[in-house]
């Protein structure tokens, strides 16, 4: 009965076949699914709406203020505030300078903190893992989705600021920090570059949040912890007695994006910023990987 003997084995090989043959054949599918899932959540949409509302509020406030005081800003307040009334493009820079210290990293902290812990909480994580998503692959997809959110959040602020600025204020040649001027088109390119740098500045928080997210089965706890860490880092960075610590805190070089508004561009601060973000992403990413690939999934 040698044929009968061969039967079950052949069936087993056939059943387990596709995966055995060539490894993952559609590696990008999970990333796409992950991004789509992130942006279909209510939470994500509310956060983007709040971020987009900030420049509108700032723009309206500046408009009212300049109408009343005849355009004279007194030099206090966020960077570039004084220039907005003269050139709406500066609302983009102001809005990013306003949201980068708190709103943007908090939003990223919420999305990143929830990424793994939220799925553990609802139990969908175990079904992704038996699918089998693969723990490393799932973590990479999660990080990719959070990174896309960093970009989306930044663009929500920048595009809303650009639209508000164009409606409420004149647009034209922009005067850079060193006094030189650029035509509007080149100015828009600078704004785009600023947005890109701001989005990259958030990757450290993204990786930190993802690591926290692998530590717990409660999405709320992970979000709160990540946001708490962001605020703590900001406070520590602001204490003069802790100057020695400053350069190692992820928000320390964030506002260096303003150096893109010089001619020639001054790169040192941004290089330090992006380098620090890369270190945070590498360290927190490795920690998240070490934790997530060895962890018991019982939820």
């Amino acid at each position: 009965m040698s044929r009968a003997e061969a039967g079950p084995t052949a069936a087993a090989a056939a059943a387990a076949g596709p995966a055995v043959a060539g490894g993952p054949r559609w590696p990008a599918g999970l990333v796409r699914s992950e991004i789509a899932l992130t942006f279909r959540r209510w939470r994500t949409r509310v956060l983007l709406a709040v971020l987009a509302a900030v420049p509108v509020l700032v723009g309206i406030a500046v408009r009212i203020q300049s109408g009343r005081a005849g355009g004279g800003a007194d030099g206090r307040g966020p960077a570039f505030l004084a220039q907005i009334a003269g050139n709406g493009l500066f609302l983009v820079f102001t809005a990013l300078a306003v949201t980068l210290p708190v709103f943007l990293p908090m939003a990223v902290g919420v999305i990143a903190g929830d990424a793994v812990a939220g799925e553990a909480h609802t139990g969908t994580l175990r079904y992704l893992l038996v699918a089998p998503a693969g723990r490393t692959r799932l973590l990479v997809a999660k990080f990719a989705a959070v990174a896309v959110f960093c970009l989306a959040g930044t663009l929500a602020v920048a595009l809303s600021a650009l639209a508000t600025g164009a409606v409420l204020f004149p647009l034209g040649r922009i005067t850079l920090l060193d006094g030189s001027t650029l035509p509007l088109g080149a100015g828009l390119l600078r704004a785009l570059a600023v947005a890109a740098v701001v989005a990259l500045s958030l990757l450290g928080v993204a990786a930190l949040g993802l690591f926290v997210s692998t530590l717990t089965d409660s999405g709320i706890a992970a979000m709160a912890t990540t946001v708490g860490l962001v605020i703590t880092a900001q406070i520590l960075d602001g204490i003069p007695q802790l100057q020695a610590l400053g350069p190692y805190l992820f928000p320390h070089h964030w506002l260096s994006f303003a150096d893109l508004l010089r001619q020639p561009v001054y790169w040192d601060g941004m290089a330090q910023n992006l380098g620090l973000q890369a270190v945070y992403a590498a360290v927190c990413g490795s920690a998240a990987w070490a934790r997530f690939t060895t962890r018991d999934i019982t939820a």
């Binding site: 596709p18 995966a19 490894g23 993952p24 054949r25 559609w26 590696p27 599918g29 999970l30 796409r32 699914s33 899932l37 279909r40 959540r41 209510w42 609802t122 139990g123 969908t124 175990r126 079904y127 992704l128 038996v130 699918a131 089998p132 998503a133 693969g134 692959r137 799932l138």
Partner: peptide
């Protein structure tokens, strides 16, 4: 596998839930 009861994405339709879990399987042809 069905382990300890079902777990679903409440904000997705039944069909989209299945699409999501299928996308997680690298051996599943999209």
């Amino acid at each position: 596998a069905l382990i300890e009861g079902p777990a679903l994405y409440g904000f997705l339709s039944g069909r989209d839930n299945l699409r999501r879990f299928d996308a997680a399987d690298p051996a599943a042809d999209p």
